[in-house]
Amino acid sequence: MTMRRSFAVSLLGGLLLAGCASKQDVGPVSAPTTPASAQEALRPYYASLAAKLPVAPPNPALADDTTLTRIAFGSCINENRAMAFWDVIAAQKPQAFLLIGDNVYGDTGATGAADIPTLSASYRKLSSRQEFDRFRRSVPMMTTWDDHDFGENDVGGSFAFKEWAEKAYESYWSSSAEVRGRPGVYESRIVGPEGKRVQFILLDTRFFRSDLVRMPYRDPGPSLGWYLPNVDPKATMLGDAQWQWLEGELTKPAELRFIISSTQVVTSAHNFEGWTNFPKERDRLYRLLADKGVNNALFLSGDRHAGGFYKADVPGLSRPVWDFTSSSLNFAFGRGNNADREPDPARTGGFWAIPNFGQIDIDWSAKKVTLSLRRDDGSVIEEQLVSPF
């Protein structure tokens, strides 16, 4: 019997026993309360667990006054596959690395147990990999999660075990007190002296997200995904608290901003996961950028097991908005350029389904940023030169 089932049986038994209390009992009998959600029902069980959660190797701090000229990022790491890419990225000498989702595949082989033992096992496996250990101890890192380290493929805020997944995430990545003190794993940081400040806004596109709308089943299935736009006015990508937080973050002074979303923002060319699933929420994001006059933001995204560059013209902004997708570090779903499979007017080049990482070089004197999608040997696949200042 899985923990999910055994816990449900235990909870039901408690409610039945409460309802069968003797009429001779002295004092009023309180009616049993029904948990408002699966998450609420599981909290007593989680509070009783004494499990020691895994912790990543120590990581050097990134000094607040660092003038950033090179950062790197990536997503989608299968902890059981080759990891030579870590040494390749380290050789590029990035000052920071952003790991932006599917940092392990912790849902592989999941049994439905509420403490998600496969997730803890995946974190431990990642820590055992020498290349990751070496990189983690030498390059400052920032992280957010996606579905496979959240707990289940394509799930969002209704995922029953999300609070334990959050606890495991915050334990492993040694999250800040600010992150630990609120639901979700979103956070922000500004690095650099005045005139060269870089803001990193790492969104949580899982913990609060509304359910996806799925197409009716058909055979053969659609080649570009099963999901339809969710147009429910109450549907959300970030949740109210994170939206309010994001608005506040965008008022902080910075010369350059990176908004990190685990799933793609700009493209609407597929029916897999992305902000395209919630068009009203994407419109809200664009309006927020325009209302705050944020012309200096670049989106970084992952999830797709392929990489590419995308841009969109947003009403109210004087420059195009770029979305740089890098995925996967070692788990690509192809052998080359899949552009013909997924035509996209928003994409500026190929759609590269080969192992890749993203590198970002900032030239403060020229006010230019070079975005380069790179193979796992460090060579350049494609580059884009942008002027977001």
Rank of each mutant, 00 (worst) to 15 (best):
L289S: 08
L289H: 02
L289C: 11
L289G: 06
A290E: 07
A290G: 02
D291N: 04
K292Q: 14
K292V: 15
G293W: 11
V294R: 01
N295C: 12
N296D: 15
N296M: 08
N296Y: 05
L298T: 15
L298Q: 14
L298V: 15
F299T: 05
S301C: 10
G302N: 05
D303M: 10
D303A: 15
R304K: 13
H305F: 11
H305R: 03
A306C: 08
A306W: 00
A306I: 07
A306T: 06
A306Y: 03
G307A: 14
F309G: 05
Y310P: 00
Y310G: 04
Y310H: 08
K311N: 13
K311A: 10
K311I: 09
K311W: 10
A312H: 06
D313H: 06
D313N: 10
D313F: 08
V314S: 00
V314Y: 02
V314H: 00
G316C: 15
G316H: 13
G316M: 12
L317D: 11
S318L: 15
P320M: 10
P320Q: 07
P320Y: 07
V321K: 00
V321Q: 01
V321I: 12
W322S: 12
W322L: 15
F324Y: 05
F324I: 10
T325A: 01
S326Y: 01
S326N: 04
S328N: 06
S328L: 07
S328P: 01
S328M: 10
L329C: 11
L329D: 06
N330L: 07
N330I: 03
N330F: 02
F331E: 11
F331M: 14
F331D: 14
F331T: 10
A332N: 01
A332H: 00
A332F: 04
A332G: 03
A332D: 04
